[in-house]
Each structure stands twice: as C-alpha cells, then as structure tokens.
Amino acid sequence: MQTLHPSLASVDPLLLGETLIRLNVLPIGTLHIDIEDTSFISNITFGMKTINAVAHSTQHLLSFHLMLANPRPWLEWIAPLRPGWIFFHAEALANPAEDLAAIHRTGAKAGLALNPATPVANYVYLREHLDGLLIMTSEPDGEGQRFIPAMVDKVTDASTLFPKTAIWADGGVDPAVAPALRKSGAQHLVLGRAVFSHSDISRALQAFAGE
C-alpha cells in the first residue's frame, strides 16, 4: 500500500476552499504544498497568506516541497503550521546536512528532493540525517510534467541505497505507473492532475488503492 499526498498546486485556485473541504474527509497521508517563487524553477505557486489559510482549514498534516534557491528562511514561517514533512531541493543546498538539521528543529521530518538528472548516490553520506528522499519523476514544471519512465530505475536505486529512508515519487504519477513505482520501492506518491483533473476526487484516489 502506498501513501498518497494530493498536491494543492494542481487544484483550480478558484476551487481551493471547496477542495479542502472535500479532502478533509478522505484518507490521505498529507496535503502536499509546493512552494515556488521563480528562484529555482520558472513558476510561482503559493504565498504565506494562502498557506496559512490552508493550514487552518484542514485536519491533515502538511508536507512542503520547497522548490526555492534559498529555502531555509521559509522554515520560520512554516514551523508554526504543524508540518509533517519538509523537502529541500538538494541542488539548491551548499551544506545539506545543516539544512536537514534546521528542518528537524521545526519538528518535521526532513527530506531531500532530487531532480531527474541528479544522481542518488551523491547523497548516501546523508543517510543518517534523512527521513525522506523525494525523486522527481518528471522535469519540474517542464514538458507538461510528463512521467519519465527511466525514473523507475532511479527509485529502485534510491530504495537500495537508502533502505531506512521513506522514498517518495513526484511528477506525472497516475494509476498506470503507480504499480511500477511501488514495486521499485516508492512508498509515497505525490499526486496532482491524476486526482484534481477529475470531478470525483475520492474515486480518483481509489484508483490508486485498487492497483
């Protein structure tokens, strides 16, 4: 069984409040919040006003994926919101061990996110510091965020090199690719359009449970 994390970046912003109400009664792992400000990838998602509103409108824990060139200052704002998980992008960090320690001080589980071109093996030295490793299975906000089949092998490498670390897959994930990701060792799936492009969110989530 894989834990599902719906990503609010894929929600119609005009329906965000209504969607949160619907998600509140569904069995999910966390609400996943991508924070992007154009410093790391060419997109803007949520500011703190929206993030605070989400945090106070849900009973679910939040997982944060900070796609930022300088993510550390955001911890001060995120820490009061009961974060369950916080991921920094490895490519943006000069001293990742220090950054992971800073995440742990918020009370959240600490993770690194890796873009498709970033080798997993480079971060084996951080095994004892990591709670989670998020493998981007599509280019961030690129080519329609299509799933890259070669990333299944990368998930396998991650689960082998990090046997005590929770492996996440994020990017273009749908019910067709979920079984291969599960078999390769991805225990957590971040879901976007595969859930929110459907009118029935509950049924869309059930499609993953029925693999």
Results as ranks from 00 to 15, higher is better:
171 G>P: 15
69 A>D: 05
176 A>C: 11
4 L>I: 03
112 L>T: 00
116 P>M: 09
99 D>G: 05
166 A>I: 04
116 P>L: 08
207 A>H: 04
63 S>Q: 08
145 Q>V: 12
126 L>T: 10
149 P>W: 06
94 A>C: 05
67 M>T: 01
21 I>N: 07
189 L>F: 12
145 Q>W: 10
191 L>A: 10
32 H>Y: 07
169 A>D: 10
43 N>L: 14
92 A>K: 08
145 Q>P: 12
158 A>T: 03
171 G>K: 08
23 L>A: 05
26 L>N: 13
98 E>Q: 03
87 F>V: 02
145 Q>N: 13
71 P>L: 00
206 Q>I: 04
36 E>F: 13
81 L>C: 03
93 L>V: 04
197 S>W: 01
36 E>D: 14
6 P>H: 03
188 H>L: 06
26 L>G: 13
101 A>L: 07
45 T>C: 12
211 E>K: 01
205 L>V: 12
53 A>T: 04
202 S>G: 07
90 A>S: 08
132 G>R: 07
81 L>P: 06
130 L>P: 13
115 N>P: 00
172 G>M: 09
117 A>Q: 11
56 H>C: 00
198 H>M: 03
27 P>Q: 11
49 K>D: 15
58 T>M: 02
80 P>Y: 06
86 I>H: 01
144 G>F: 02
70 N>F: 00
126 L>K: 04
121 A>P: 00
117 A>C: 05
195 V>R: 09
121 A>N: 03
27 P>V: 01
2 Q>V: 12
44 I>C: 07
44 I>A: 05
109 K>R: 15
